[in-house]
Design a protein around this nucleic acid. Structure first.
Length: 289
DNA sequence: CTTCGATCCTGGTAGC
DNA sequence: TGCTACCAGGATCGAA
């Protein structure tokens, strides 16, 4: 499941292998992969052809490629299973190949969007006026992520505490703080010894800063390891958690001993997914919702 | 306005 | 063995 660290690794791969190249032709093989593009697949392909790709950018789990005149950007979201691969033009199509981008140069590689579950996709959007990075207008509401130098920490802490919700819901709220998904939310909460259902209103400033620190730490740790699975013809993305899955302390560890206290970890159904936590280190709030 | 839950999708696997 | 049911989950949209 690509969250911020995985998407950042992909961004770096695109920066190296795709930036500066001019698009020759685009092939949309599955309409769902361009469903966020209002004009449909043919329009997406026509508008992208002939354009030159600028420096890839990222905010949270969103990735985008500004185009030459900065009027439009290609927005990409990997969803749950999306991959952006740089492959030799002659390589056999992947089973779930959804979009192919051919280039007008002699490098011999093409960009492929492969996505089994089709939660992800590509689309073209006007950029926010004055945005140097070519921020697509449709993601202007997405908060900056905790690794962004422009992340406003004071604003975040105040907004978090003003929410009438629970900690994990808030961590997953991309308009409050972006880039966190189910895996890193559970990891950060475990590190902070906080229960996922604790009301945000009860989190005092110091604890909130501590939690944010753990979010950053776990993401940086994952990023450091994720970078190693990169090679030249494969813009990373193993869709999985990369090498970091061996370092997870909470996610997926039901019945395994807590790495701090040895108590068996628990899994609880939560919002049509799961929450993993240590019942001893992460005590539930007194008044549970 | 804010919060909450259902829904989209497909492949792997557990269970019968 | 072959089938069904369930699980993974980010973002969106409509309901409360």
């Amino acid at each position: 499941m690509p969250e911020l660290p995985e998407v950042e690794v992909v961004r770096r791969g695109l920066a190296r292998w795709v930036a500066g190249r001019t698009v020759a032709a685009v092939e949309v093989l599955h309409p769902r992969a361009v469903r966020r593009h209002t004009g449909g697949g043919a329009d997406f392909a026509a508008r992208l052809a002939g354009r030159t790709i600028g420096a890839p950018q990222r905010r949270g789990k969103y990735l985008w490629l500004p185009l030459d005149d900065r009027d439009l950007s290609v927005l990409a979201h990997l969803g749950m299973s999306g991959q952006l691969l740089v492959q030799p033009a002659g390589a056999p199509d992947e089973k779930h190949l959804r979009i192919r981008v051919r280039f007008a140069d002699s490098a011999g590689t093409e960009l492929r969007f492969v996505d089994q579950r089709t939660f992800g996709g590509l689309s073209l959007h006007p950029t926010v006026p004055g945005s140097a990075e070519g921020l697509p207008d449709v993601i202007a509401h997405i908060a900056r992520d905790p690794l962004d130098p422009g992340f406003d920490e004071m604003l975040y802490h105040a907004a978090l505490r003003a929410k009438r919700t629970t900690l994990k819901r808030a961590l997953l709220d991309q308009s409050l703080i972006s880039g966190i998904g189910n895996i890193y939310a559970d990891e950060a909460l475990w590190r902070a010894k906080l229960h996922y259902e604790r009301p945000t209103t009860t989190l005092a400033g110091p604890r909130s800063r501590e939690l944010l620190g753990h979010v950053r730490d776990v993401m940086n740790a994952a990023l450091a390891v994720g970078g190693t699975s990169f090679d030249s013809l494969y813009v990373n993305v193993n869709g999985e958690s990369g090498y970091f899955d061996r370092s997870l302390d909470a996610y997926g560890r039901e019945d395994e001993p807590c790495r701090r206290c040895g108590t068996p970890m628990r899994r609880r159904p939560w919002m049509n997914r799961s929450s993993y936590f240590c019942p001893r280190c992460q005590r539930p709030p007194r008044v549970s919702s």
